[in-house]
Write a protein that binds this DNA or RNA. Structure first.
Length: 718
RNA sequence: GGCGCGGUAGCUCAGCUGGUUAGAGCGUUGGAUUCAUAAUCCAAAGGUCGGGAGUUCAAGUCUCCCCCGCGCUACCA
């Protein structure tokens, strides 16, 4: 057992609101884990903050005609507010635009440089000559080579999700000026990731680094280890840690060539965990360093699966390269949550936004949390449906949990004027855990204790769904206890039985008020108040209960007076659910403009005209008519067809990236236009001797450009 | 195309290093009960564990092939 814990949740990117996928992926599991540790009296710090740098934010700012600062301020506030209202209890929610973070990141960068971790390398990057600046990947838009979406970004196509590099884009254009960018050399600092490959491989697979056992690899999730190994297999490459950008953390200015360069967001974001911890320590007049640099600290990163490689390979490499920092003991990445059968998508506005949920279903924070936990994508992608949300809320939270708590309190109010009854410790009654068995107060308390321990073990293993299920077993046992012993029938005939049963029922309620806190913090507080118990202090409450239960002691003492009982949860009516489903369908149909009401509708982007050329430029092209004689799929390539084209005077082999648009059989005999004097180029081992000219529509569909049918092959085109 | 992770009851998911009649919650059906918000409790039905072959005394659990989903990655002149 480690002495202290530092827990992080992925920094949300401050250019949009939070949705349920974020919540269930990286924030709820961490929040449960942390709450539990606090209740067990552990030394734990839970940090997070907004990730406020990077090109996507500056682009958004340009689009909306505001400054990047205004964008991040807006979303930082919105996100922080959503977290707070849904009960995610960070020790600090920081932001990467804070001066402390800039300074921390720069110091980190200097240290890496000092340790010889960087290579300076020159590369060709797109440069906008009108705007006189290098273009970040995100600043370049072009046609996606995968799905032909005409508005793919230089790093990613949002339509098909492919990861791209700017040079892969067809017809790249700058979002700054609309002009076609040119390649120009620029210098960047590259982290020598390749030199870290070997120890990372050992560390991931055995948990050992430098011969020291740091964690148990069997405790890591399959998909996490699997994806890391998938990367390690392919070999790690040096990775640029700086960018030509104007919004971010400056490369330490004393370095030659630092001008105009910023740290790569993916470098500065995880360092945000460190600066957040520093700020927390300042605020609390304590030392941050033990939480990052001491062997007996357990560092745990909660993230979504899209972040695995960064948190399991690149950031650990950075931490180790620095030399003073601990490595994470686990990175319990979750998979993705789907919504009503489809992927959650910001651009298609297929999402449930947390801030909207909070407004539209006020007071139902825990209902959402419960469903998010119950359907948490721990081992595979999972599914959220509004119908399922309603069903589990009404049956499990309202029926089972709130039902039990209410009936036990009502019975105590009715029979003992709301005062916890004293009872005979030796009195036997029917066990709520097994209808066949007789029990005493002690044996039943022991059962609950076992359940609590079981629940804790599951939380420590990041099995939050299972932990939640065990929590609910306590409630079910409470219901069964009442059911089997029927106190409402026996108040007069067997008052001693009723006393012990209702007392025990109240003990269950008290235990639940603590044990449910990590999952259902709002309901926990409401229940504590109904039971007239003090609000839960920061720490130890669960540990104390463990100790009491281990001794067979009651949690609430006889003669303790309860407050008024109310329903802990209320049913969700059909109308509410139907309204949400309709809203989802409607906004999705309306497109992204609604989710971001302030954002202007995206202007229709006609492909901007390229730079003016002279006739001579055109005359260089030798375009001929041709006929496709043969066509076949290229082995081991999804998008390539290998064509034999008859140009009349000769036959050419041409490789063309149209396999996803046309089947080989369908295009044999097709008349086409061929760029015949293009320098040959090898693709997938086949020499391509020309290029087929294709037309492309707004949707990215491709079509052949053909002469009139029957036109002789080899004719020139001008 | 390569790599990784998944494919288990109507639905959502557990099943660790192979070992008795494959589990849970919800849903369904039948019964009990009425203190409790159309609540609760009990019971039952329901699965050839994606398909096929193999290893083994024994496979959901190991090996190989194939199919499907998700993710990463290559090919795009």
């Amino acid at each position: 057992m480690k002495k202290r814990y530092l827990v992080t949740s992925a920094l949300p990117y401050a250019n949009g609101p939070l949705h349920i996928g974020h919540l269930t992926g990286a924030y709820l599991p961490a929040d449960i884990y942390v709450s539990y540790l606090r209740l067990m009296g552990k030394d734990v710090v839970y940090v997070c903050g907004s990730d406020e740098h990077g090109a996507a934010i500056t682009i958004r700012a340009r689009k909306e005609g505001v400054t990047p600062r205004e964008i991040v301020d807006k979303y930082h506030a919105l996100i922080r507010d959503s977290f707070e209202k849904i009960g995610i209890a960070f020790d600090i929610y920081h932001r990467t635009s804070a001066p402390l973070h800039h300074q921390t990141s720069q110091d980190f960068f200097r240290k890496l440089l000092e340790n010889g971790q960087f290579d300076e390398k020159e590369s060709e990057q797109y440069f906008d000559e009108e705007a006189q600046q290098f273009l970040a990947d995100r600043y370049i838009i072009g046609t996606c080579p995968v799905c032909a979406n005409p508005d793919a970004y230089g790093d990613q196509c949002e339509k098909c999700g492919s990861t791209l590099s700017p040079t892969q884009l067809i017809n790249p254009r700058s979002t700054l000026s609309g002009s076609a960018p040119v390649l120009k050399p620029t210098t960047h600092w590259y982290l020598k990731l390749n030199e870290h490959e070997n120890w990372l491989r050992e560390w991931i697979n055995t948990g050992k680094a430098d011969g020291v056992q740091l964690h148990d690899p069997a405790a890591w999730k399959n998909h996490v280890v699997g994806q890391c190994n998938s990367w390690l297999e392919q070999g790690l490459q040096p990775r640029a840690m700086t960018r030509d950008l104007d919004w971010g953390v400056d490369v330490p200015p004393e370095l030659p060539g630092a001008k105009g360069k910023k740290l790569y967001v993916w470098l500065d974001a995880p360092i945000g965990y460190i600066s957040a911890t520093k700020q927390w320590a300042l605020d609390n007049h304590t030392d941050w360093e033990p939480y990052w640099k001491s062997e007996d600290t357990a560092l745990v990163h909660f993230i979504g699966k899209d972040n695995i490689v960064f948190h399991c390979l690149i950031f650990p490499a950075i931490l180790k390269a620095h030399g003073e920092f601990v490595l994470p003991v686990n990175v319990p990445a979750n998979q993705f949550m789907n919504l009503e059968g489809d992927k959650i998508s910001t651009s298609r506005n297929w999402a449930v936004w947390v801030h909207e949920y909070l407004e539209e279903l006020p007071g139902r924070e825990d209902e959402l949390r419960y469903n998010m936990i119950k359907n948490m994508p721990e081992q595979r992608d999972s599914e959220f449906t509004w119908k399922g949300f309603q069903e589990t809320t009404n049956t499990e939270l309202v029926g089972n949990l709130a039902g039990f708590l209410h009936r036990v309190q009502v019975l105590v109010h009715k029979n003992y004027t709301g005062v916890v009854p004293a009872f005979d410790i030796n009195r036997e009654f029917k066990s709520g855990w097994d209808a066949e068995k007789w029990a005493t107060f002690d044996t039943e308390v022991h059962q609950v204790h076992l359940k609590l321990e079981e629940m804790g073990r599951e939380i420590e293993r990041f099995n939050f769904r299972e932990a939640l299920r065990i929590l609910m077993e306590i409630s079910s046992a409470g219901n069964a206890l009442l059911q089997f012993n029927e106190p409402w029938k026996l108040v007069n005939d067997d008052p001693e039985l009723v006393k012990v049963v209702l007392n025990l029922g109240l003990q269950y309620a008290a235990v639940l008020s603590v044990a449910m806190q990590p999952f259902l913090p709002f309901a926990s507080a409401r229940l504590r108040s109904m039971l007239n118990l003090a609000p839960l202090a920061e720490d130890r409450a669960l540990l104390d209960i463990h100790n009491e239960l281990a001794e067979g002691n009651p949690i609430v003492r006889p003669n303790h007076a309860l407050n008024t009982a109310e329903h802990l949860f209320t049913r969700i009516p059909d109308e509410l659910i139907e309204a949400q489903i309709q809203k989802l369908q409607a906004t999705a149909a309306a497109g992204p403009a609604i989710a971001n009401a302030q954002a202007p509708a995206p202007e229709k982007t006609a492909m901007p005209l390229k730079e003016m050329i002279q006739y001579d430029d055109f005359a260089k092209l030798d375009i001929r008519t041709g006929t496709i004689l043969e066509a076949a799929k290229v082995e081991k390539a999804d998008k390539l067809l290998c064509l034999t084209v008859d140009l009349g005077f000769e036959k050419r082999t041409i490789v063309s990236g149209i396999a996803q648009h046309f089947s080989p059989e369908a295009i044999i005999g097709k008349q086409v236009l061929v760029l015949a004097n293009l320098a040959p180029r090898k693709m997938r081992g086949i020499e391509s001797e020309g290029m087929i000219l294709m037309a492309e529509d707004a949707e990215g569909k491709l079509g052949f450009v053909s002469p009139e049918s029957g036109w002789p092959a080899g004719s020139s085109v001008s």
